[in-house]
Simulated assay, not measured.
Amino acid sequence: MSERPDDGFAPAIDAHVHLFPERLASAIQRTLTDAAGWEFEYAIDRPSMESTLVDAGVERYVALPYAHKAGVAVGLNEWLAAEAADSDRLIPFATVHPDDDGVGEIVREAFEAGARGLKFHCPVQECAPADPRIESALEVAVEYDRPITYHGGTAPMYEDDPNVGADRFAEVVESFPDLRVNCAHMGTYEVDAFVEMAREHENVYLDTTFAMSTEAEEIMGFDPSSIDDEVFETLSGSIMYGSDFPNIPYPYRAERAELLGRDLSAETYRDIFYRTAIDFLGLDD
C-alpha cells in the first residue's frame, strides 16, 4: 500500500515500530484483536514493512522488541540484530525479561551487538519502570549511554495495572537521572502529568504513537486536540514521532495527519519528525 509523504513529514524517523519473527508477530496481533477487536492490514515481514515506511517518507525506524516471558530475550535480540545487519534503515533496540537469569549481562551483550536502546512493555512484562528485577539492566543502559522506551502509561487497556502510570514512571526518573527515558503514547491517559515530567526533566521524552492519530478518539477514547499546540512548540525537543506500525488498525497516514493538521512551526515539525529522535538515540545527525 502506497503512503505518499505529506509536506513537512519527510524525511522522518519513526521511533516506535514493532518487528518480530513472523510467528510471534502474528500471535501478538491475534492477542490485540481478541483484547480490543482491532484488525490489521499491513504485512509483518521486514521487506514489506520497510517498503510501506519508505513510501511514507520514513528514512529510518526504531524496532522495539519485548520479551513476553523469561528465556526468549536473547533469541529475540540476536534475531533483530541480524535483521538490522541486512537493512540500512532499521535501528534495533534490545529486550530483556525481568525474570531472566543475568538481566544486566543480556542487555550488555545486546548493546555490544549493536542494539541502540532498550524496550520495556510494563503491562505485558509485569514490571514497573524501576522494578528492582531490572535494575541491573538500567545500570547497563546508563553505562552505555543507551535510552529506554517504556510502555509506561495506562492506555489503551491498562488503567488498573499496578505497573504503569505517572507515579510509577516518576520512580525511574528520580532513581536514574542520567538515563534517557521515553514514555510511549504521550503517556496516555495521564498526558498532563507526563508532559510536566518532560518539562521538568531534560532526560524525559514522549512519543506520539497512537495518541496523536486521527483515529485515537475512536480507537482508544483519547482526544488528540486535548493537547494544546503550545505543548508541541515548547517541548518539541522532548517529543518524537512514533506509529506502532504495523500494529495499527488504520492507515499509516493517520499517525501523522493529526499533527500535520496543526499550525506548528517548521522547526517544531523537524524536531518531532526527526531531530528529537536523533537526540534521544544519541546518534550523529
Rank of each mutant, 00 (worst) to 15 (best):
P92E: 06
P92S: 06
P92Q: 03
P92R: 03
F93Q: 07
A94N: 03
V96Q: 03
V96I: 04
V96N: 03
H97M: 11
D99N: 14
D99H: 14
D100L: 01
D101L: 12
D101A: 14
D101K: 14
G102C: 13
G102I: 00
V103S: 00
E105T: 09
E105I: 10
E105C: 05
V107I: 11
R108F: 03
E112Q: 13
E112V: 12
A113V: 03
A113P: 06
G114V: 02
A115D: 01
R116N: 04
R116D: 00
G117T: 04
L118C: 07
C122L: 08
C122H: 05
P123A: 05
V124G: 07
E126T: 15
E126L: 08
C127Y: 00
P129Q: 03
P129C: 04
A130M: 09
A130E: 06
D131Q: 11
D131E: 07
R133S: 07
I134G: 00
I134C: 05
A137T: 02
E139T: 15
E139V: 12
V142W: 13
V142F: 09
V142A: 08
V142T: 14
E143C: 07
Y144H: 14
Y144M: 04
P147D: 12
I148Y: 02
T149H: 03
Y150H: 03
H151S: 02
H151W: 09
G152E: 02
G152T: 08
G153P: 06
T154D: 12
A155G: 08
A155T: 04
M157V: 08
M157T: 09
M157P: 06
Y158S: 09
Y158E: 11
Y158R: 12
E159C: 09
E159I: 12
G165Y: 12
A166F: 11
A166S: 15
D167H: 09
D167W: 13
D167A: 13
R168E: 15
R168G: 12
A170E: 13
A170D: 12
E171V: 08
V172T: 13
E174I: 10
S175H: 13
S175R: 15
S175L: 15
D178W: 08
R180M: 14
R180E: 14
V181F: 07
V181L: 10
V181I: 10
N182F: 07
C183Q: 11
A184F: 08
A184R: 00
H185L: 07
M186N: 07
M186A: 12
M186C: 10
M186Y: 10
